[in-house]
Amino acid sequence: MTPVQILFILVAAVTLGAALMVVNARNLVHAALWLIVSFGGVAVFYAMLNAGFLAVAQVVIYIGAIAILMIFAIMMTRNVAGDSSPRFNSSQIIGLVLALALFAGLVWMTLSWSGATTTPMPLDSRADPISQLGSALVSPDGYVLAFELASILLLGALVGALMIAWDRK
């Protein structure tokens, strides 16, 4: 095994273990903290795939914004942060079946894809992925439409939040 494979297995174990703890922790704040560990593991995967920008964006957005918002909401809610909340509800069997079916489907799809068994080509070390990503996002042959649509969606969400919080006198 190459060192990269060992690292991959270690990080995957931590990520999956943390993800399991998210649904298994009795305390909601603990669940949120485990979720952060899981997010961090995904960021390490991105970094191992030479996608530094995605790795850092994962930390900024998922850990820096979403997880902190989640912890904040949990701490603000009365009586939720205690240890008493039940871990399972009545639909656990259905959930288990659905999760297994989804996992099996993903494994089957990955195995039937020809790219899964070929070794990846080495990246061109001279190319700057950041500037390529930047020009792809705003060039007309690239993703400018999707990019602008996403911007409008975010702006709409921003204005909506402002309208909800507006103090009408």
Partner: peptide, 25 residues
């Protein structure tokens, strides 16, 4: 020499916020 050094600084700052929330809670 990260090519996303500036974003990295922001990301680490986010983790620092988290540490203080953890201490407070």
């Amino acid at each position: 020499d990260l090519n996303v050094g500036i974003l990295y600084l922001v990301a680490v700052g986010a983790i620092a916020t988290l540490a203080i929330i953890m201490a407070g809670w």
